[in-house]
Design a protein around this nucleic acid. Structure first.
Lengths: 176, 176
DNA sequence: CCCCTATCGTTCGTATCCTAACGATCTATG
DNA sequence: CATAGATCGTTAGGATACGAACGATAGGGG
């Protein structure tokens, strides 16, 4: 929500909490839940924009394009709908990304031989080359980004985040 | 990066790691760093879209508009540049958001009396009413989203994320 | 007192991404 | 077989956000 909730100075965070409680005039509210959500969002935008302006810019790839190449690289030829699931983007978005990637000769689209509604996507030799050279650099930046955490903390961070994602997905699905 | 890295099934995550290592052909890479970053991004988009489609849609507010109102509510009248810092959006984006909010009579813009380059923004009575009614509901959803974590885990999550954000900000600033 | 530089908010062009509507294709049912 | 319903990818339109360029304003140095 606000930079102050992501501050590295504990005093500033405490002060922010006090400021909020003052405005709320005694109404109950969950500060730790708010701090967690705020920081998820802040960290995500910070990391993403860092990646886009460094590694991805060098290789002229958008975040979405990189993710698509990566999924195809690791798991091979995929139907468009599965790529959408894996990358977390919608079909509509994917159409545009795949169009661009195909124009740049990084992926190849073919209609499924058994079901002509489906489209199969796979890396070209050029696409394989690009992702093979981009990924190690990308991962090096991920390593840098998390280098102030111990390995155990990195794993704990991922675990906690999975629980949040899972919980929200359940809420969206069941609507309760 | 991929849904599989955010899976709630440990076996699926382990399998994903194995698949990646296979493609990498022995090249070293940092899985826990990747898992952490992937899950930050996944959690952020999941939570944000949940908020936008529930609480914020009901009150007809975008994520950015909500954040602006919240900052003004807690910390009072602000210069535009400070709002940009707090909310983490650019000046250009903010101009648009503020324009919309002002048209809806939720905020009021005035030029700074001492420095005519600056624009001061504050909530109107209507704006105060809107954020006062929206925030408790927003916070309730934040509480729901993090309800599978203990309070200590929520705090730990925020702490770890702050370290990542801080680290990446430092990287961007010093360029090393 | 007058430029030179810096800073602020706005504007404009561009990129990304989502939703809704659509046509093509497949499948189940009778 | 024929047809109704479901599913897939594409398209079109709109919302959001960023960065660069710009005009207005302020403050320091000669």
């Amino acid at each position: 929500m606000s930079r102050r909730l992501s501050s590295s100075k504990p005093a500033e965070i405490s002060q922010a909490e006090a400021d909020i409680r003052e405005q709320l005039e005694g109404q109950p509210f969950d500060f730790s839940a708010m701090a967690a959500v705020s920081n998820i969002y802040r960290a995500a935008t910070t990391v993403r924009s860092h990646m886009e302006s460094t590694v991805l810019a060098e290789h002229d790839l958008s975040w979405a394009a990189f993710t698509v190449l990566w999924v195809l690289w690791i798991w091979g030829e995929q139907e468009t709908r599965h790529i959408a699931q894996e990358t977390g983007s919608t079909k509509g978005t994917l159409t545009g990304v795949l169009k661009t990637l195909e124009q740049r000769n990084l992926v190849k689209r073919t209609t499924h031989p058994k079901d002509r509604r489906l489209v199969l996507v796979k890396l070209t030799a050029q696409g394989t080359k690009v992702i093979k050279s981009t990924f190690p650099e990308f991962n090096a930046h991920e390593r840098l980004a998390t280098s102030t955490l111990t390995k155990a903390e990195q794993e704990q961070l991922a675990t906690l985040l999975r629980k949040v994602t899972q919980r929200v997905s359940d809420l969206d699905a069941h609507g309760d």
